[in-house]
Design a protein around this nucleic acid. Structure first.
Length: 880
DNA sequence: TAATTCGCTAGACCGA
DNA sequence: TCGGTCTAGCGAA
C-alpha cells in the first residue's frame, strides 16, 4: 500500500503539501488565487462576525484548491408588518430606534416593500450583525410590530435569496483578499421560545450526548485563514468533481462503552484509488502501516481530513468524530478542519458532526433517509446488512471482543482479519457515498441546502426550504413557524384521508389495474390548491370548488401549484431523457438522480400541507386535496360500473377491474373516456393486466383492504400487505405463505398447497426449523419503561438489558418464542440468547404459520382441520 | 428535532 | 377462563 498516497500526486498542491509536512497541517494562508473572474464548486456557507458587522463566507473548491470567498454585500434582515396608515411614521421610528442601551445599535436600513400583507405595510429591516437581528426580533413584539421571516439563519437566507446551489458551481469576480482569524458566527436560535426543554432534559439518551456536550465545552481552537473577497457571485454549471475520503476507527473495547474512554487502536482511510490502515504497538502485517503512538495515529487522521472536500463515515455523527475529538483532546493534539474545531451538534435524538467547510457525509444517515423514503429495501442498517442487501456483497463482521485480542496478541492471522475488516468498513461507506450522493447532490441544488444538511434533513425541511426559495423569488412573504400550542391544536384536528373500497373476497381471474398518475400533485395543479389561493375574494373562482366546499383562485397561480407543476413536468422530461440514453447504451446516473430528487420532494408536498410544524400548513388545502381525490376515484369507479366492469377493489388512486369477457382494448377505451372528462393535468393510466388475483376475508368478517396478491401473464407475483411483506413475522410463516400463494395463483393447485403446509408443520413439530427462520423482528420504539403494554419484543428487550445488553429507542430487535415460560412475552428472548432448537413449535404453528396461510386456503374451501389432518381432494378446476 | 391518513392484526390487559 | 377493549407495530397509498 502506497504511503501518503493522497499527497503530492498533484504538482499544483506541492506548496500545500510541503507546508503540511512542515507544520503537520495544511496552511490555507499559502494559497494564491489571482484577481479576476473565476469558477468554483460551492461546498459550504457560513458567516463571520467581525467587529462591526456579520459577513457571508462561502467555502469553494476548484482544481484541488479549497478556500473561502467573502461576499460583503449582504446583510441580515427581517420583515416588519405595520399599520398602513402609520407607515411613514413607523419607518422613521424604526430607523431611529436604538434597540440596545449597551450596544446602542440601530437597524441599518428600513425599506418600504410597497406591498400589503394582511392589510398591513411590509417593511424590510436590515441589520449590521446577526446578533442585532436576534435582539431586535425579540423587542419588536413589545413595540406592537408583527415580524416575519425573522428566524431564517443568515447563511441559509443568503443562499435562498441568491438562489445559489451547494454542490453546483458558482462564478464570481475576485477583487481582493485578506488574512483573517477563523471566526464563525454562532448558530442562530430558531425562536425565542424554547421548544420542549423539559423533554430534552428528561431524555437521557445515554452517555453519548453528555460526553459530546463536554467535548464542545472546550474553548474552540482557531487558526488564521486567507479569505478572498468576491463580487457578482452567481450560479454556474459544472461537473461534481471533488476529493472524497472515507475513514473508520477501531477502538479498544472496555467493560462499559463510553465515548473516548478507551484508546483508538486502528484507523482506515480510503480514497478513490488508495487506501491505508494505520495502527501502533502491534505487529506489522500486510496492509498495515505502523506509527509510534495513538497520538501519531490521530495526527494522521487529522492530516487526511484536511486534504479532502468530502469526508465520509458510517455513523461518524455519533461515533468516529465525537470519539476522535475526545481522544485528540486527551492526547493533547490538534483536531481541526480548516483551522476550526469539529462541532458535535444536537440533531434530533442524536448528534451531527459538522466540519468547517469540508462536508461530512455520514453514510448511515444517508441509508436511514433512503430507508424512510422507501428508496432502498433493507431492514437493518448496520454496515454488514447494508453491504449485503444493497450491494449484494457479504461482509464479515469482527465482533468487539475480537478487536482487543487481535491487537494485543499480535497474532498475524487475527490481525490481518482486523485490518481487512477495518479497511472494508471505510470502503463500504465510500461505496454508499458514490452510489447515492448523486441524489443528495440534486436535493442540495434543488433546495439550496449544503450536502451536510441534505444528507441529514427530513423531507419536510426540504420542502420548506424549496418553498422559502421560490416564495422569495416570487416576492411572497413566508408564514411564521407555528408555536408549540398551535402545533398541538393542529395535531388534534387531523383531516380525512383517502377512500378505500372494500374488495370482493376470493379468487378472481383476468384483472385489469388502473391508476391515476401522481394523483395528489396533479390535483394540486389542476385546482390551483395553495394556502394563498384558498377562498379568494373573486366570486367567479367559486366554480373551482372542492367537495369540501372550499374554493381556490382561478386567476393567479398559487405557490404550491406553480412549484409542483414545474417539478412534475421537469421530472417527465428527465425520465424520458434517461430512458432514451439508456436505449442508446448510455446510463446517465445524473438524470436518474435528478428525477429521483424531484420525486421525493413532489411526494412530500401534500403531506407538508397537513404537517403540524409546517410554516405553510393549511388544513383546508390538504383537506381539499383528499376530498377531490375521493371524488375522482369514486366517480371513476361509478363510470367503470356504468361501462359494465365489475370493480373488485380500489385504494386512493387505483381501481381493480374484473375483465370478464372484455378485452385489453376495452380497458384502454374506458381509460381514454375517463381522461376526456378529467382536467388536463390529470391522467388515468392502465397499470397492468393480471391473470389471477386473490383477496381474503378478515377474521372479523368482510374482505380485507390493503391486502392482495396478483400474478401477471408472465407469472410474476405481486404480494401486497400480506404477512409475507411484513418484518414482524418470522420467515417460516412468510415463506410458507408465499409458496401457498404461488401454488394457488400460478399452478391453481390448492391441494398441493395444503400438502406443503402439512410438511412445514411436521418440520416445526420435530424441531428441525433453524433459528434464522423463527426470528421475529420489531423495532423498539420507546424506552422499555415507557410502555403501557409489555409485548413480546419489549419483554425480550428488558431481559436482554438485564443481562447487560445496550438497547435503546430505535434498536431493531430479533426475538424468538422459546419453550421456557407461560405467556408469549415470558417465552420471548432475543435471538442471540436462544440456542438452536429451543423454540415453541405450538406457537409457531398456531400463531405464525397457520394464521398466515389459513385465510388463503379458506377462500378455496379448505379449513384449518384440512391443514392439520388430511383433507379433501379438490383442485381449482372444481372450484371454478 | 417527525410529510399525511387508512387499515389490519397480535397480544396484553382487565373485568366478569 | 373467557371475551371485549386497548396498545403497539407495520404496511399501502
Amino acid at each position: 500500500m502506497a504511503k501518503n498516497a493522497s499527497k503530492a500526486k498533484d504538482p499544483k498542491s506541492a506548496k500545500q503539501a510541503i507546508s503540511a509536512e512542515k507544520n503537520n497541517i495544511l496552511k490555507i494562508t499559502d494559497l494564491s488565487v489571482p484577481k479576476g473572474k473565476m469558477k468554483a464548486l460551492l461546498l459550504d456557507v457560513s458567516y463571520a462576525d467581525k467587529a462591526d458587522r456579520s459577513v457571508i463566507r462561502l467555502y469553494v473548491t476548484e482544481n484541488k484548491r479549497r478556500f473561502w470567498i467573502e461576499d460583503d454585500d449582504f446583510f441580515p434582515y427581517l420583515y416588519a408588518l405595520v399599520d398602513l396608515k402609520q407607515k411613514e411614521k413607523m419607518i422613521q421610528n424604526l430607523i431611529e430606534h436604538t434597540f440596545s442601551q449597551e450596544e446602542k445599535f440601530k437597524a441599518i436600513k428600513v425599506e418600504d416593500q410597497k406591498k400589503e400583507v394582511n392589510g398591513k405595510a411590509m417593511l424590510k429591516m436590515s441589520f449590521a450583525k446577526v446578533s442585532h437581528l436576534i435582539q431586535a426580533r425579540n423587542l419588536l413584539p413589545e413595540m406592537g410590530i408583527d415580524k416575519r421571516e425573522y428566524d431564517i439563519p443568515f447563511a441559509k437566507r443568503y443562499l435562498l435569496d441568491k438562489r445559489l446551489e451547494p454542490c453546483n458551481w458558482i462564478e464570481m469576480d475576485i477583487v481582493g483578499e485578506e488574512i483573517a482569524e477563523v471566526i464563525e458566527g454562532k448558530e442562530e436560535g430558531t425562536d425565542n421560545e424554547s421548544a420542549s426543554e423539559e423533554e430534552e432534559m428528561e431524555s437521557d439518551a445515554s452517555q453519548k450526548i453528555e460526553d459530546d456536550k463536554l467535548a464542545n465545552e472546550e474553548e474552540e481552537k482557531k487558526e488564521k485563514q486567507r479569505v478572498f473577497i468576491a463580487k457578482n457571485i452567481h450560479n454556474a454549471n459544472g461537473p461534481f468533481s471533488v476529493e472524497m475520503i472515507s475513514f473508520d476507527l477501531e477502538t479498544h473495547v472496555g467493560k462499559k462503552f463510553t465515548i473516548g474512554i478507551e484508546p483508538i487502536l486502528m484507523v482506515s482511510a480510503v480514497r478513490e484509488k488508495s487506501g491505508r490502515v494505520i495502527s501502533y504497538d502491534t505487529k506489522e502485517v500486510k496492509g498495515l502501516e505502523l506509527v509510534e503512538s495513538e497520538k501519531e495515529l490521530v495526527e494522521e487522521i487529522h492530516k487526511e481530513l484536511n486534504d479532502a472536500d468530502i469526508v465520509i463515515t458510517y455513523n461518524g455523527d455519533n461515533f468516529d468524530f465525537p470519539y476522535t475529538k475526545m481522544r485528540a483532546k486527551k492526547l493533547g493534539t490538534r483536531f481541526l478542519v480548516n483551522g476550526k474545531d469539529i462541532r458535535i451538534q444536537r440533531h434530533g435524538l442524536d448528534n451531527a458532526a459538522k466540519l468547517f467547510g469540508v462536508q461530512h457525509v455520514d453514510a448511515f444517515q444517508v441509508m436511514r433517509f433512503l430507508q424512510r423514503t422507501g428508496s432502498v429495501n433493507t431492514v437493518k442498517l448496520d454496515i454488514e446488512s447494508v453491504s449485503e442487501n444493497v450491494f449484494g456483497v457479504y461482509k464479515e463482521k469482527v465482533f468487539p471482543w475480537e478487536i482487543n485480542e487481535a491487537h494485543e496478541s499480535r497474532d498475524e492471522e487475527k490481525l490481518e482479519r482486523l485490518v481487512d475488516y477495518n479497511l472494508k468498513d471505510s470502503e463500504t461507506a465510500y461505496r454508499i457515498a458514490k452510489e447515492f450522493l448523486p441524489l443528495f447532490i440534486e436535493i442540495s441544488k434543488l433546495t439550496s441546502q449544503t450536502l451536510f444538511d441534505s444528507t441529514r434533513n427530513s423531507t419536510s425541511s426540504m420542502v420548506e426550504d424549496l418553498l422559502l426559495k421560490e416564495a422569495h423569488t416570487k416576492g411572497l412573504i413566508a408564514p411564521n413557524k407555528p408555536k408549540e400550542l398551535e402545533i398541538r391544536e393542529r395535531l388534534l384536528n387531523p383531516i380525512k384521508g383517502a377512500f378505500v373500497k372494500e374488495p370482493v373476497a376470493g379468487l378472481h381471474e383476468k384483472i385489469a389495474v388502473l391508476d391515476f398518475a401522481s394523483l395528489y400533485p396533479s390535483i394540486i395543479i389542476s385546482h390551483n390548491i395553495s394556502p394563498e389561493t384558498l377562498n379568494c375574494v373573486h366570486p367567479e373562482c367559486k366554480k373551482n370548488v372542492s367537495p369540501d366546499g372550499t374554493w381556490f383562485c382561478t386567476k393567479e397561480k398559487g405557490l404550491f401549484p406553480d412549484i409542483v407543476e414545474k417539478m412534475l413536468k421537469q421530472r417527465l422530461v428527465l425520465k424520458a431523457e434517461y430512458k432514451k440514453k439508456k436505449k442508446e447504451g448510455i446510463e446517465d446516473k445524473v438524470f436518474f438522480a435528478k428525477q429521483w430528487a424531484l420525486k421525493i420532494v413532489l411526494n412530500s408536498m401534500y403531506g407538508y400541507l397537513g404537517y403540524g410544524r409546517a410554516r405553510w400548513y393549511s388544513r383546508d388545502s390538504a383537506s381539499a386535496v383528499t376530498s377531490w381525490a375521493r371524488g375522482y376515484i369514486q366517480d371513476t369507479i361509478a363510470k367503470a360500473e356504468e361501462a359494465e366492469f365489475k370493480v373488485l377493489y380500489g385504494d386512493t388512486d387505483s381501481l381493480f377491474l374484473m375483465m370478464g369477457t372484455k378485452t385489453k382494448d376495452d380497458v384502454g377505451t374506458f381509460a381514454e373516456k375517463v381522461n376526456k372528462d378529467l382536467p388536463e393535468d390529470m391522467e388515468l393510466e392502465v397499470d397492468g393486466f393480471y391473470k389471477r388475483g386473490i383477496f381474503v376475508t378478515k377474521k372479523e368478517g368482510g374482505a380485507a383492504k390493503k391486502k392482495y396478491a396478483l400474478i401477471d401473464e408472465k407469472g410474476a407475483l405481486k404480494i401486497v400487505g400480506f404477512e409475507y411483506v411484513r418484518r414482524d413475522w418470522c420467515n417460516v410463516a412468510k415463506d410458507t405463505q408465499k409458496k401457498v400463494i404461488e401454488m394457488v395463483l400460478s399452478e391453481g393447485d390448492p391441494m398441493k398447497a395444503v400438502k406443503f403446509v402439512r410438511k412445514v408443520l411436521d418440520e416445526l413439530k420435530t424441531g428441525k426449523v433453524p433459528k434464522k427462520d423463527l426470528v421475529i423482528m420489531t423495532l423498539l420504539q420507546r424506552k422499555p419503561k415507557d410502555y403501557d403494554s409489555i409485548g413480546p419484543h419489549v419483554a425480550a428487550a428488558m431481559k436482554a438489558i438485564e443481562r447487560g445488553k445496550d438497547l435503546g429507542v430505535g434498536s431493531m430487535l430479533s426475538f424468538i418464542i422459546t419453550k421456557n415460560g407461560k405467556s408469549i412475552s415470558d417465552r420471548a428472548e432475543l435471538e442471540e440468547y436462544v440456542e438452536e432448537g429451543n423454540y415453541d413449535p405450538d406457537y409457531y404453528i398456531e400463531n405464525q404459520v397457520l394464521p398466515a396461510v389459513i385465510k388463503i386456503v379458506q377462500e378455496l374451501g379448505y379449513t384449518k382441520e384440512d391443514l392439520l389432518h388430511g383433507g379433501k381432494q379438490s383442485g381449482l378446476t372444481q372450484w371454478f
